[in-house]
């Protein structure tokens, strides 16, 4: 297993961990953090590929992902605050209003 492969395995592990966190954790904030973890996994894989190929495009993409992450968190956090104030809980299972 060379360096690139190891880094990719790390990236995939982080991504899977993040996805698992979204599914298994109850707290909305922790679910958000798990999503950040997923993004970080993706970033790592992009940087790894960019490094391997010697191309700058991967890094550009990473940069854009930073921006997206910032925007995402800027909206998500107020929503979390709003939910906490309205229902006094961040338990994701408490929000089942879209039940079909």
């Amino acid at each position: 297993m060379d360096k690139t492969q190891a880094l990719l395995v790390l990236a995939l592990a982080l991504f899977s961990l993040g996805l698992a966190g979204v599914v298994v954790r109850r707290n909305l904030l922790v679910m958000l953090m798990s999503m950040e973890l997923m993004l970080n996994g993706v970033n790592l894989s992009l940087v790894t590929f960019a490094n391997q190929m010697g191309a700058a495009e991967g890094a550009v993409l990473v940069f854009l992902i930073f921006v997206v992450a910032a925007a995402e968190i800027a909206i998500a956090i107020p929503i979390v605050l709003l939910l906490a104030r309205r229902r006094h809980t961040l338990d994701a299972d408490a929000y089942a209003d879209l039940k079909g």
Binding site: S16, A20, V23, R26, T89
Partner: peptide, 23 residues
């Protein structure tokens, strides 16, 4: 907030298993 005390959702085991599968 109870969400701070109860850690896992009811889908802990299936979720963990499938996430392992994904990895």
């Amino acid at each position: 907030d109870p969400a701070f005390r109860r850690r896992f959702s009811p889908l802990l085991f299936p979720g963990a298993a499938v996430a392992l599968g994904l990895a």
